[in-house]
């Protein structure tokens, strides 16, 4: 259970990216080799890409990989630098929380208006359902990394 909690986004990403690779490749092979194609491949890959991006962002957040410019803060004295880092973390949390909220609104809108996807006619909210949760996970991982403390 602990392993699952710990590895959740890595597992999601690995499975997702592998499936996307296989689907995209299968479409090429089938289109070239036979008189058929998996006509809706593009829609599935694009949908998967959105999920891959938010859950991948959670992996990166946890490893502190989201790139920042450290030029200015490196010139500050240590106590001031610490304060600035706290402010930066709060600002980042604010944006991520806003992203969760806006993606939640997107989901509610899409469930309300019944929009369907273009190629497969699936409810559009299926593709967006994981977005608010994905951003929430990014937020959690970002806070975890901040609490764990980087070199500061």
């Amino acid at each position: 259970m602990r392993l699952l909690l710990d590895q959740f986004e890595k597992l999601v990403c690995a499975v997702l990216l592998l499936l996307m690779t296989l689907l995209g490749f299968a479409n090429v092979v089938i289109r070239y080799g036979t008189n058929q194609s998996l006509a809706a491949t593009e829609e599935l890959l694009t949908g998967g890409f959105v999920l891959l991006t938010v859950f991948g962002a959670a992996i990166a957040a946890r490893r502190g990989e989201h790139l920042a410019v450290e030029l200015v803060t490196d010139m500050l004295p240590a106590p001031l630098r610490r304060a600035v880092i706290v402010i930066a973390t709060l600002l980042s949390v604010l944006l991520l929380a806003a992203s969760v909220w806006f993606c939640w609104q997107l989901l509610v809108n899409q469930m309300g208006n019944g929009m369907r996807s273009y190629a497969l006619g699936l409810p559009l909210w299926w593709y967006s359902a994981a977005l608010p949760f994905g951003f929430a996970l990014v937020l959690i991982r970002y806070v975890q990394a901040a609490l764990r403390g980087r070199d500061g």
């Binding site: 890595k10 690995a14 997702l16 992996i59 990166a60």
Partner: peptide, 21 residues
């Protein structure tokens, strides 16, 4: 190795894609 590669690639792509988004 494959598992790590897939997860690393997703993370690396997301760092870029979040900027794009």
């Amino acid at each position: 190795g494959l598992y790590e590669c897939l997860a690393d690639s997703a993370a690396g792509s997301s760092v870029v894609m979040l900027v794009v988004a």
